[in-house]
Design a protein around this nucleic acid. Structure first.
Lengths: 195, 195
DNA sequence: ATGTCAATTGACACAGTGTCAAGTAAATCA
DNA sequence: TGATTTACTTGACACTGTGTCAATTGACAT
């Protein structure tokens, strides 16, 4: 029962992913996805209620395939908080290009669609978890700069690392990933690590 | 000839502004704007080619009325670069709420619309100008942290100050404007000002 | 053979933008 | 005064993309 269903469903998810990446999230219509997946447009609606539902599902599918959670949480094994911070920036900076188109689409849909907002927030919550871990470790090592409260530090850390910031620096300012990670590490360490 | 035209045009711009602020940029249709302005929907198209054209024009209108350019550039008269930086963050942090809805709409339209992209980029270029001024002044005072190149410092400063960062911290994390300005100043000074 | 299930096909409703043509009402100019 | 121009109105319509619906096909299972 589920093997054939899963095949079509997966074909749709993969097609969505591919198109979202190719077109950087723009101008991807249900018909285009159906065509690439080799199914009828209506077949998509047999598996997903709405376009946004499909986007959320694709985001989750991609996250599972690429394993962001593991990549990010593995980082927390670093010997010191400062090293964990650097590794974290590295993992994130190199991960974003792989999800750019899809993330962008979800971010736009987020403004008008409750389901998209939830899907996006879930993805970003996992990024935040890592920030919480790093700030907590900094506190444990007594290396957090003293003015910060834990929650404010997490908020600022998470925001500084955000998808939008990554986008503005790389796409907007033309930075390489190496530039992004280098300067991001400097800024974050100066902001949060006691001198 | 131009007095009546300007009246209607202005009525449309003001209505657009009001609705965009009220609804935080969401679900504002041409018909809604026309209704509030007290003109027919088609009258709008006599003054503006497309919805995006209207949004750009409104953005410019608002900028003129509120005088962002002056507010931002006045700041550069501060006695030291560090004081200018603080004043700059203050002006910007308090300005954003006044333009939030419109800026948001323009930012979303930016992704699919060339004219919107241009309008947005123009608005943000004016923010960037101020960043350039402050970094230049830091260099003149020999207070810029030594690792930074001028252009990279400007990119990072500008990005850290961006609309999206403001939005994530205030709307997303629930920060007050005071919190935003306080922590933003700390982060920026640590990142860019030599110790 | 019969029922069920996934998928196809084509038609359609709906929302919102933008277009078009005909008409109105007031100001301008002769 | 009457003719023209200008700004605007009115209502109809084309277009795009999403989501719905009903009738149909083909395969597989019992």
């Amino acid at each position: 029962m589920s093997s054939k269903e899963k095949n079509t469903r997966t074909k749709i998810l993969e097609a969505t992913w591919q198109l979202m990446v190719e077109r950087r999230g723009m101008g991807v219509r249900m018909g285009d996805i159906a065509k690439l997946a080799g199914v009828s447009r209506q077949a998509i609606y047999l598996h997903f209620d709405t376009r946004t539902d499909l986007m959320s599902a694709t985001a989750i599918h991609v996250d599972v395939v690429l394993g962001l959670d593991e990549r990010l949480s593995a980082v927390l094994d670093a010997p010191t908080a400062q090293q964990a911070l650097k590794a974290y920036v590295d993992v994130w900076g190199n991960y974003v290009p792989e999800i750019y188109g899809l993330a962008k689409a979800l971010l736009i849909a987020r403004e008008t669609d409750e389901a998209a907002a939830v899907a996006w927030d879930e993805r970003m919550a996992c990024l935040r978890d890592g920030c919480v871990g790093i700030i907590a470790e900094l506190i444990r090592e007594d290396r957090l700069a003293p003015e910060w409260s834990e929650s404010e530090a997490v908020d600022m850390f998470w925001t500084t690392l955000s998808f939008q910031t990554w986008e503005q620096l790389t796409v907007g300012c033309g930075w390489s990933i190496a530039q992004y990670t280098r300067w991001m590490e400097i800024v974050l360490i100066r902001a949060f690590v006691k001198a």
